[in-house]
Design a protein around this nucleic acid. Structure first.
Lengths: 211, 211
DNA sequence: GCAGTAATTCACCATCTGATGAATTAAAGC
DNA sequence: GCTTTAATTCATCAGATGGTGAATTACTGC
């Protein structure tokens, strides 16, 4: 009845880092950053709390590692900016859905929960989201910078709303709808925001100038 | 150089309860529920932490008091359900904006931050939001229950996205746009979701039946 | 003006938090 | 096979957290 050796290195391949990352992504996404403790993460991962510090250095760094996207947004959205204007609404939506329904989802969820909560990072994330990702999607569209910014933020508002409703609130029937159905329902609105007529804008997709 | 008496009741009218509520709404809205401590709230209100317990009983109860809406949603949205279908998009949006740009804003902000974070309350809030408020706005519209639910959740997705972008992320130019401008930009989309043609639906606003 | 009650702060408590350093065990290098 | 290095747990820290009970002061009813 010897107590089995607990301290010290385990045999075989080491998995603690991945276990911690998995539990952390899950719990950060579920409860948010502040409401998730390192000890809770460690417990969920079946590991000593000190391991978190060993592998990541601290809570902040762990969170950063959690939201490190396994996919490059530029790669996911890159081709959208090369499509003809009238196809971008649907392409943008499908790119976003594909990204979300991929291994990146836990990271994105953790991110989304904490964009709307206000961590220090939030400002940076906003900037990346709005300036970089949207810039990619709207590259080459006609119109003044101000008009494109306005169109972009409208697109973003609908996409954020969809993500919140589908992945955070899990509101049916959005939560379990397939990509095709969502594309049919929402892509027309995105397309409208991208290239449709807007008040304060002379025409839809004007060829030259702004007035 | 006597230390002025600090303990005991203060002279004049008592304001602590309101001070605490104000600070709590502000801080809950700013940092979220979990990241806001009672002591921080008390410090901000210039009051002893024990006052929070005296007036509210605990953190949970304080939060509940914070999100107690100063306006009755039914009152704000009631008349929307009585308008002809083709006017409801704009009316709904304006009702929401009016509610937000009112003394209720801090409470709503605290609420929104913690709907997307996941407190225990969240499920209840979702239910109230989706089933009750949307039900009011969609009362009397034609179509099957399933279709109305789908239209409703689409409407909600756009409105949530707008609220998040405008009030949480403060993304320009949405954040500082006036009601008229927002109505012109977004009401058509809400109207489209409410009564426009949707895939899986025979026609727009069918008069009778569903197929 | 005296008694009761309400408002306020203080001094604590148990618990949890993120974090550190040492001890222990296994793997890797040679 | 011995040494070095990496992985793991333990014991522990200082500080913050939500919460409680008593002491102190002012207002209120009579």
């Amino acid at each position: 009845m010897r107590t089995p050796p607990q301290r010290g290195r385990r045999q075989g391949r080491t998995t603690s880092r991945e276990l911690i990352l998995g539990s952390a992504r899950k719990l950060f996404a579920e409860h948010g950053y502040a409401a998730t403790s390192l000890r809770e993460i460690a417990r969920d991962a079946g590991v000593d709390p000190a391991m978190v510090h060993h592998w990541f250095g601290g809570k902040e760094e762990l969170f950063n590692a959690c939201v490190e996207l396994p996919a490059d947004p530029a790669q996911v959205l890159g081709h959208v900016g090369e499509l003809p204007a009238e196809l971008r609404g649907e392409a943008l939506l499908r790119a976003l859905l594909t990204l979300w329904d991929s291994p990146a989802q836990p990271a994105l969820l953790a991110l989304l929960r904490n964009v709307t909560g206000s961590k220090a990072q939030a400002a940076l994330i906003r900037q990346v989201l709005f300036k970089r990702m949207l810039a990619l999607a709207m590259a080459g569209l006609p119109g003044s910078a101000a008009e494109l910014e306005r169109r972009g933020v409208l697109v973003a508002s609908q996409m954020i709303g969809l993500m919140v409703a589908r992945y955070l609130l899990r509101a049916e029937p959005l939560a379990s709808a397939g990509h095709d159905e969502l594309a049919a329902l929402i892509a027309p609105v995105l397309q409208h925001y991208l290239t449709g007529p807007l008040p304060g804008t002379g025409s839809a997709v004007p060829g030259t100038g702004h007035g």
